[in-house]
Nucleic acid binder design. Structure first.
Lengths: 217, 217
DNA sequence: CCCGGGATCAGGGGCGTCCCCGATGGTGCG
DNA sequence: CGCACCATCGGGGACGCCCCTGATCCCGGG
């Protein structure tokens, strides 16, 4: 337990959240986790890591300047380990981040002590996932061909079509989607028609199953 | 690793499956897991456990004579530990079995070595769950009030209503449910109307989400 | 400058969903 | 026997879903 402190850089675009992380880590006691620096976007993150050479980077997934994946790409040469810390538990984000090189992925619902534990385990070379995520991360790697096919299909959707698709898959009625996106019902119908055609599905029910099977919600 | 062998009774109504379990456990080597007896229904299981006093009972959930839960109820006085082994990963089965006193629950997709490991861990007093199941078992206990409420709601449905409910929740159209259950569409509509009213839901989409949230599929 | 693609919208039609009303027969219970 | 409950079915209606045709606007590439 009384090893050398783990040296950490915290990357997140919300200052409030960075403060919270810093406070939680500090309350674990001095000499357990040492926050060397913080960063709020991709450029700052790269600079901070190159300057401080931390053991672990706590990395937000959604980050101005390209996201956490971009940070990892530009620091691929270093031997720093990345622990993704995100509000999202969508498969797109998780799989993408792991592929980008993260050694772990936990959601922001994590408690302070759990985070400390996760950081130490990543520093030791372990992979750490939130319990909910572990299962489908393994599934995704077991069936990685299928995941690739999904991404291909998903790429054929436009941004607007993806928005509509997500809401429909969650059970929104066309009317509700229209209100949510400030567009007409008819426009929603058009987008949905395109979505179903591009994904080769024939009803919103199949879409729901398609999306839940792939944890896109 | 070289502790005393774990003494086991295998309970399952399929002889073929019992043979498979026995073979897999034997291939782990002599003196690791010792299969004392097999049983194919509730009465046999109770008798076998009382006769052999095993460390662990490998217990199928769906069993003629009342299911695995009944076996555990009638053996509650013993200090035997139960490891449920089932094809089902439905929440109803998992939660019910755990409540009945099982110390673990693994699905039949498990490999031989994993099963050996699971048996040893249960014998040592650990709780063992298939990765997919661990998450929602914990969820269920965290929100056990809600689970109780679910069961209460479910109990208010008749058998026929539950059948219809399951099919609808899986995305079947009324017409398809009718064909599947050899009844008229109108009857399906009546049942669905009752289901929605009893569960205080207002659409088949809410029903789908309700069911998937609780893993009733 | 035209052409393609994306986003927006409209009308109309076929079918699915969900509700209202009502009806029949079976079954168990006091 | 009367009564409650269940399963079964029907008509009809309001609205949702999905498709088709067709239209406008904007934007970027050849």
């Amino acid at each position: 337990m009384a090893d050398a402190p783990v040296r950490v850089v915290v990357v997140d675009d919300h200052a409030m959240f960075r403060s919270g992380v810093r406070a939680e880590l500090a309350s674990a006691g001095a000499g357990v986790v040492d926050v060397l620096a913080e960063a709020a976007d991709v450029d700052e993150a790269v600079a901070a890591v190159q300057a401080h050479r931390p053991d672990v980077v706590l990395l937000d997934v959604h980050l101005p300047g390209g996201g956490g994946v971009e940070v990892m790409r530009r620091l691929a040469a270093t031997e720093t380990r990345f622990l993704a810390l995100s509000v999202s538990d969508a498969a797109e984000d998780v799989i993408g981040t792991i592929r980008g090189g993260a050694r772990g992925y936990v959601t922001k619902t994590i408690t302070g002590p759990e985070l400390v534990s996760a950081i130490r385990r990543v520093a030791d070379g372990d992979a750490v996932f939130s319990p909910r995520l572990a299962g489908f991360v393994l599934d995704a790697f077991a069936g990685s061909i299928e995941v690739a096919a999904v991404d291909e299909d998903l790429d054929r959707l436009t941004e607007r079509e993806r928005e509509v698709m997500r809401l429909i898959a969650r059970g929104y009625a066309y009317k509700e989607v229209a209100k949510e996106l400030f567009i007409s019902i008819k426009t929603v119908e058009t987008h949905m028609s395109n979505v179903l055609r591009k994904l080769q599905l024939s009803s919103r029910h199949e879409l729901t199953r398609w999306a839940t099977d792939r944890r896109l919600l």
